[in-house]
């Protein structure tokens, strides 16, 4: 179906452009729906995972496989230490990790037009991470992450809503889908 798919993809690209923020005639976005507790937990989960992702890519990405212990400053203050072991299968695009992240008042924020992608968070605590990090689409990520105690403080959503949690977190990642619990509450998000 490559031929048809290419034409379809090309036309869809064209159609996708119609959703692109590239022109001057931008329609005013509707007011975002209210963000309740589950929504706020979901954004917080995403903030935590993306902060870990940043820490990993700043410290271990591209390093030789094996044991590592690296520390990096966070973009807006604080630090992140990543230690443990990582092996890889470059052909499959997969990295097997058994790591621990120690975040010390690590500050990170993200702004986007999608209300549920906005956060400004300071994170402290220790989190373990085991599983596969994959370079999609040749493979898929599968991770389990746990923390006995993690402190998240800041704002989530747009307009910003105050957020604070200081409790155990359990988190699973399947592909780009995150599910888990924050302080015993179920939470989920898409990366």
């Amino acid at each position: 179906m490559r031929v048809c798919r290419f034409i379809v993809v090309s036309l869809a690209l064209g159609a996708g452009l119609l959703g692109a923020g590239c022109g001057s005639a931008v329609t005013a976005p509707p007011a975002p729906p209210p963000c309740e507790d589950a929504c706020k937990d979901g954004v917080a989960l995403k903030a935590l995972r993306e902060t870990m992702k940043l820490a990993f890519n700043l410290t271990l990405q591209g390093k030789p496989v094996g044991e590592h212990d690296e520390t990096t400053p966070c973009p807006l203050g604080g630090s992140a230490r990543v230690f443990g072991s990582a092996t890889s299968n470059a052909l499959q695009g997969a990295t097997e990790v058994k790591l621990t992240y120690v975040l010390a008042e690590c500050r990170y924020l993200f702004k986007d037009d999608d209300a549920e992608d906005n956060y400004a968070m300071m994170i402290s605590g220790t989190m373990t991470q085991e599983g596969i990090l994959a370079v999609q689409p040749s493979a898929t990520s599968a991770l389990v992450m746990k923390s006995e105690s993690m402190r998240l403080l800041g704002t989530v959503y747009d307009p910003p809503l105050e957020y604070a949690a200081d409790c155990p977190i359990e988190l699973g990642q399947n592909g780009n889908k995150l599910t888990g619990t924050i302080c015993g509450r179920e939470a989920f998000s898409d990366l």
């Binding site: 993306e50 992702k53 890519n57 271990l60 591209g62 695009g93 994959a134 689409p137 990366l191």
Partner: peptide, 22 residues
């Protein structure tokens, strides 16, 4: 095109690209 072609240098740790980079 990806079959048998390394996605990153063999012997190194690959990136975490969950979510495609924000």
């Amino acid at each position: 095109a990806t079959c048998g072609i390394p996605r990153f240098p063999p012997g190194t740790i690959g990136p975490d690209r969950s979510g495609g980079g924000q």
